[in-house]
Amino acid sequence: MNIKTMAEWAAEGRQPEILFWVGCAGSYDDRAQKVTRALCKILDAVGMSFGILGMEETCTGDPARRAGNEFLFQMMAFQNIATLNNYGIKKIVTACPHCFNTLKNEYPEYGGNYEVIHHTQLLQQLMAEGKLKLEGGGSFKGKKITYHDSCYLGRANGVYEAPRAILEALDADLVEMKRCKSNGLCCGAGGAQMFKEDEPGKQRINEARAEEALNTGAGIVASNCPFCMTMLSDGVKAKDKQDEVMVLDLAELIVRNNSL
């Protein structure tokens, strides 16, 4: 698989169909990198041309903004928008709901106007267009899977159905947690919590959420966010259930199902 940067596309005088915004977690976190590669494999398999910014991409500024550091956020925003506009980017896909939210809802204020979609939405579109076919009777058929709504895809942007459509296409047995969709419980990472210790309390949020996921009896917890992924994996580990229960991104489920 040949993953080209926007600079390389530009050198050839061409534009890919879509820019894949990888994000910091997707670039640096070992576990999230697997999701990044899974998405690349799918795009490659369906023949959708894409580019990445590579070394030119930087943090969107989301954690800085939510921590209260508006200066740093806007500096990152202006810098990224300059890069994106320089390549004439029109359409962006990202596997991180935080990047998704910031690019989609917050960058327009500073002159960054793009069509931004989350990877689960793109995957649903590709399925609907018939470009991505999930091989029926795949390895997840009838398997109990629970789905964790990330706050930034769910409540923040109202995307609840696209990820569930993927699970349905996989023929999986979706078991919902009691708190789901607009009622879903946070994994504990948002609002820059990922980068600090918890305040004193009775329990860690990720463990509380992992408990809810484990209570469904599902063998797989499907997620759509690299931070939820870390939080839930840690939570499952804290309950010593890592050998029975896997936390997987929806893109990874597709890659496994189709053996890409």
């Binding site: 670039s27 590579g54 930087t58 550091n69 820059a192 980068f195 600090k196």
Partner: peptide, 25 residues
């Protein structure tokens, strides 16, 4: 805890200080 995060974003473009390049994945 947020101070190193701010510093890394400002200086390295990512909330974590990483020894590898952004596209090594």
């Amino acid at each position: 805890d947020w101070v190193p995060m701010f510093n890394s974003i400002e200086n390295g473009g990512s909330p974590w200080q990483m020894p590898v390049s952004r596209d090594h994945w």
